[in-house]
Design a protein around this nucleic acid. Structure first.
Length: 748
DNA sequence: TTTGCGTGTCATACT
DNA sequence: CAAGTATGACACGCA
């Protein structure tokens, strides 16, 4: 369990770092409770890599030396962990993405979106047209790859390039462009600013900033103006017509705002009531959309490290938080209203009605009540999906095409759409909270995320026990003189090691000098470490000094005796000698010591032999206490040496993998953000289209007397079964409110 | 001369 | 408890 704890901690830390880098807030508790399995996998996965390895077991194959026994496990571990991390990181976004694909299915050709609804088209026609668009695509597009998706986007005029996954500069630029394009919708956001701020009071400032920026970009909406009949005064974006659907969305978006009691009229009647300012509804609609897009863009901003100073603000959270609230209308049949001749000419419209251009004229907008909130009361309750996507007009209408439409639209839009939005909310709330985003940027700048390891190491290094080893060593050994004395004469040779306080070293050195080669040459050669032909003590010394660190293990005093041996003044020197010197250099200190102590077997054996064999080996020889001590030290140091190598390798791999993970996550994030932007745009277009359709259908309805219904008194209600009902406003409002609660309950 | 890096060791905690 | 392993901290040597 200890290991579990350790790895748990470590894994969590790493994940937290990774996720924090991409702006995703990690709630460990949540995962522990609700997603234990995944977490465990992630955490335990690593543990396997850290499982201690019995190096001596590897002896036969690897001989245990210089090989990283865990390399394989480690790689697997990291790979698995990386994948897991990516999956998890993507999880939040991917889910939405999946649902988003469904959205694409509904996307209509631009023509429809442009707002120039064929005025001549009957409701049936329009519906059928919609169906045509959606039907075929439905199954196909969901399975489409990213590329396909991007294509769709392009169809819509989206700039999104094929989703490559890499957040290249181009991508960033693209995001930038998209953002700017969408920004023009941001006007009027302030209306909603405070409605959803419960959580983000602190973010207000940011939001304000964002709003300002929106204004700055508003000018770019000129393009949209050119195309569309309706143009947002502020943003310049065009909108076909504002309908209840919009209202509902808006209302949902702005649930908390004060709702003037008699707003109902506004909702559905916008078309009919010419009194209201045309731009209010539109404005609100745009606000809503702009907020959503702004959120998306803001996220981008954080991700792309950039850029737009646009402060991440409420908008994001606000929008998305709203989404969940969107009611799904399933209730229904309140009143069967007769769908007057849908085919009737528009000319029939009463003057009042006429004020509402069926198509997408600015006149439609007037419907909107001054207060966005008011909309909530009426339409807010009604489902977005229902309002926006009138399923069928079965009622009395002849239209047969209707039935099919509703399902796709109703089902996908209602559920998938709303769910998706909610998911987006979650994603934003969790990971792309503006505040966090800003923090994220900081983190990136400081690269603090990755610096965790390094951060503590430096400090600890300096701070910690610096002198501990030296002090202990000095105390233990007679040669308390530190390195300062190393330079001194005869004793110098061994003082270097002695300096550290480990008498054993000095001893070994001496032994080496005195003893020279021992009978176990073959073994050394075998190791390729050195051919110990000429054990020239003297020559060894210099090397040893280089190699020899202060770290010598305390040896028995007896060893010291031999250690003090003299200097190598008298060694043979010749051509071979240099070679020998070179070889000596190759030897490790322990090898030198072993040789000096006449250890009858190789260090390799000493280090890598299993305990049993090792003890058996020792028992075969009559070894002195000093020799035994040295052997044990060699074994200990040798194992520790390998452990240190493994440890370093692991550490390095960890860093590299983290780096890779961060890169991958950044790429994914950028891609998802691009997709999100496109989805939002598509959604907006769809809503516009639905509005137009709603207007068109409603405008063609006629009562028994052949007169059009007043939008202020009647509204179209979409039933769960796809039927469309014409009901009084009052009932519609009631239902809407009822349904308004459902989503909330359902979500939590 | 200073600095960063790689390595070997040690000490210590854990398995 | 002994043998191993893991890892932070140091000290060296080197470029």
């Amino acid at each position: 369990m200890l290991s579990l704890k350790k790895y748990l901690t470590e894994g969590l830390l790493q994940f937290t770092i990774l996720l924090s880098l991409i702006g995703v807030r990690v709630d460990v508790d949540t995962y522990l409770t609700s997603q234990l399995p995944p977490l465990r996998e992630i955490i335990l996965g690593p543990s396997s890599a850290y499982t201690q390895t019995q190096f001596h077991n590897l002896r036969n194959t690897l001989d245990g030396y210089g090989i990283h026994p865990k390399s394989i496990d480690l790689d697997n571990y990291f790979t698995a962990r990386r994948l897991l991390s990516q999956v998890r990181a993507l999880d939040r976004f991917q889910v939405p993405t999946t649902e988003v694909n469904a959205w694409l299915v509904h996307r209509d050709p631009e023509g429809s979106v442009s707002g120039s609804q064929p005025s001549s088209g009957l409701t049936l026609e329009s519906s059928s047209g919609l169906q045509d668009v959606t039907g075929p695509d439905n199954g196909v597009r969901e399975s489409e790859t990213e590329q396909g998706f991007s294509e769709d986007l392009e169809d819509l005029g989206a700039v999104a390039p094929p989703v490559s996954g890499d957040l290249t500069k181009e991508d960033i630029d693209l995001i930038d462009i998209l953002w700017r394009q969408d920004i023009d919708l941001g006007a009027g956001r302030e209306i909603f600013d405070y409605s959803h701020r419960q959580k983000e009071q602190d973010v207000d400032k940011d939001l304000r900033d964002g709003a300002e920026q929106d204004d700055t970009w508003s000018g770019e909406g000129a393009e949209a103006l050119a195309r569309n009949l309706l143009v947002d005064g502020e943003t310049g974006e065009s909108f076909p017509a504002q309908f209840p659907a919009d209202i509902s969305s808006i209302t949902e978006a702005v649930p908390s705002e004060s709702e003037p009691p008699g707003l109902q009229n506004n909702l559905l009647s916008p078309l009919l009531t010419g009194t209201e300012s045309p731009f209010d509804l539109e404005q609100q609609w745009q606000d809503l959309m702009s907020i959503m897009e702004m959120q998306a863009m803001e996220v981008n901003t954080s991700t792309s490290e950039i850029l737009y100073s646009a402060p991440p603000g409420d908008p994001l959270s606000t929008n998305y938080s709203l989404a969940p609230n969107t009611p799904i209308n399933q209730n229904v049949s309140l009143h069967q209203a007769s769908l007057g001749g849908c085919s009737q000419d528009f000319s029939l419209f009463s003057p009042d009605v006429e004020s509402l251009p069926v198509a997408s004229s600015s006149a439609l907008l007037p419907l909107v009540p001054s207060n966005s909130t008011s909309l909530n009361s009426t339409f807010g309750s009604t489902n977005l999906a229902g309002l926006f996507f009138p399923p069928q007009l079965n009622g009395t209408a002849n239209d047969t095409a209707g039935p099919e439409l509703p399902d796709p639209l109703g089902g996908l839009l209602d559920e998938a759409m709303l769910d998706e939005i909610s998911l987006m909310d979650l994603a934003i709330e969790e990971g792309f909270n503006p505040v966090q985003a800003s923090q994220l940027e900081e983190e990136f700048d400081s690269d603090s995320g990755l610096s965790l390891d390094s951060s503590h190491s430096p400090s600890s290094l300096s701070s910690s026990e610096g002198s501990s080893s030296s002090s202990s060593s000095s105390s233990s050994s007679s040669s308390s003189s530190s390195s300062s004395s190393a330079s001194s004469s005869a004793s110098s040779s061994f003082s270097e090691e002695g300096a550290v306080g480990y008498s054993s070293d000095s001893e070994t050195l001496d032994l080496e000098e005195a003893e020279g080669a021992v009978g176990y040459q073959p073994e050394y050669s075998k190791l390729c470490r050195m051919s110990y032909q000429d054990p020239s003590p003297l020559s060894c010394l210099p090397y040893l000094e280089h190699v020899g660190h202060n770290h010598t293990y305390n040896m028995a005093p007896s060893a010291l005796d031999a250690a003090d041996l003299p200097p190598p003044g008298a060694l043979k020197k010749g051509g071979k000698e240099k070679q020998a010197d070179f070889l000596d250099k190759q030897m490790s200190r322990d090898e030198h010591r072993a040789r000096a102590m006449k250890i009858p077997f190789t260090n390799d054996k000493i280090i890598n032999l299993p305990v049993e064999e090792f003890n058996e080996l020792l028992s075969k020889y009559q070894l002195s206490e000093a020799q035994l001590s040295l052997i044990r030290d060699i074994r200990r140091r040798g194992k520790n040496k390998m452990a240190a190598q493994n440890c370093r390798k692991r550490k390095l791999d960890t860093i590299l993998n983290l780096e890779r993970d961060v890169e991958d996550l950044q790429r994914d994030k950028a891609r998802l953000l691009r997709e999100k932007v496109e989805f939002l745009r598509s959604l907006r277009q769809m809503k516009q289209k639905v509005q137009s359709l709603y207007q068109e259908v409603f405008g063609r309805l006629r009562d028994e007397n052949g007169r059009p219904y007043s939008p202020s008194q009647y509204a179209l209600q979409y039933a769960g079964d796809g039927s469309v009902l014409l009901i009084p406003r009052t009932l519609a409002d009631q239902q809407a409110r009822r349904q308004e609660r459902k989503p909330k309950d359902r979500r939590k």
